[in-house]
Design a binder for these strands. Structure first.
Lengths: 240, 240
DNA sequence: CAACAAGCTGCGGGTTTACGCAAGACGGCG
DNA sequence: CGCCGTCTTGCGTAAACCCGCAGCTTGTTG
């Protein structure tokens, strides 16, 4: 059995290497990649079936890399090992995981023990292992309670990219008014009014900009999500 | 000599510990803190004069911690050790460093050798050591070329917070029109038009929102900068 | 099938933005 | 002092945004 490690940080990389050796005696080869681009290449060359991947990497982030890898070989098992459990990451991951694929999401703050367990469960038993904390987010975001619909999330991304209402309408195939309806929904859920209204005439916020910031502070958006969205936008613009 | 290490990640923490021991034989005690809050407390209790500090920490980020520490004892020597060289961080740091204080900014990607050199230079020789890459940003941001004025940065933060033009005017003691002038300057420098104009009528952007995103993508803003700005805003709001 | 909730759409109007134009204010500099 | 560049401010306008109201299309449920 071969395992591919994709991780930015040299310290974390060697830690992972050790952890893999300890948890998986049946693993005879461990390969390392120091960023997403190299990771993709090595995965392709070695036809890797077992990958441990960091999410936040400078060169090419984990989600991008995982997407292309899964596109080529959907049965690949990937364990995401991340510092954060931002909703933006969780959403990003669950959007790209192929049907029935075994994968995992473990936080870097987890114990050695938990990491090893996750490694065995995913790579040997083909089970999904999602960190408790991450799991919580997932439920909330899929169940409607306090969570954001896909369409709400979509429009959030669109205004974050800086599109006008009209542009959004065109892009999503909606009328102007519908876009604005969704915006109102979004503002509602993000509680943009509350902080705005409390202080009569002056204290008002620019709802659109405020929504973006609140989303950031709540980790609904983060850098990598923006980056991906921006890339998609450019693609769309080029395709007329 | 005593050294205090403030760092989130256990792996990095122990790496730092070793590096300090190796670089500074004259150091007899090393203390560790795993987040900003604890860091502040330990610094106070031990009257630490030598600190190595991570910038990005979940609980209370390095800039906040450094600020309160420096407020209490401005002659404290702090070496910032960070993964990133976002302009937002660089700006944040240089805003809080007291006159004449010895400090340093080294990237985590730097070699062992460079880290050790920096430790000695700052703690023993009282010299400032700024990573080359960071230095570049600093020059650019202070010199006018391609960089952002303080007033431009200020207004960037304000719209990022979601303030209306009117609110900004009140907060900064300017007229409405002046605020809008600065906004135009900002839009100019951020190149918000270019990407907007290329594609006739539809492709236009919402300048305000677009500016925020572009600033994010260019690392002029990041989470921690937003967080700080938001805290300041709340303070201002409370002070009516 | 009737009833009802949820989402899309057009209309209309009040507010905020973006920005050209032009008149002061302030600070160097020859 | 007079000239010039930078910064501020007011006025005015076209566009974009926020949103209440009301008519339509769906899908769901009793």
């Amino acid at each position: 059995m071969k395992v591919l490690i994709v991780e930015d940080d040299p310290l974390h990389r060697s830690y992972l290497h050790e952890a893999v050796n300890a948890a998986l005696p049946e693993c005879d080869t461990v390969i390392e990649a120091e960023n997403g681009t190299v990771g993709e290449k090595l995965a392709r060359d070695h036809k890797s079936a077992h990958i441990v991947m960091d999410l936040q990497m400078a060169n090419r982030n984990g989600i991008e890399a995982a997407r292309t890898i899964w596109k080529e070989r959907p049965e690949t098992r990937i364990l995401f090992w991340s510092n954060y459990s931002d909703e933006a990451y969780v959403r990003g991951v669950s959007r790209i995981v192929p049907d029935g694929a075994a994968y995992g999401y473990v936080l870097k703050s987890a114990s050695d023990e938990r990491l090893k367990l996750a490694l065995r469960s995913i790579f040997i038993e083909s089970q999904c292992v999602i960190d408790r904390e991450v799991r919580g987010l997932q439920q909330k975001s899929l169940g409607q309670t306090n969570g954001f619909t896909d369409s709400e999330y979509e429009i959030l991304v669109d205004i974050a990219l800086g599109l006008t209402d009209r542009a959004i309408a065109k892009r999503r195939g909606l009328s102007l008014r519908s876009v604005q309806n969704r915006l109102q929904q979004l503002y509602d859920k993000l509680d943009v009014y509350q902080s705005a209204g409390d202080d009569h005439e002056d204290g008002r916020f620019n709802l659109r900009a405020r929504a973006i910031t609140v989303a950031f502070l709540r980790k609904l958006l983060n850098y990598s999500a923006l980056e991906r969205a921006e890339a998609e936008l450019q693609e769309w613009l080029d395709g007329k």
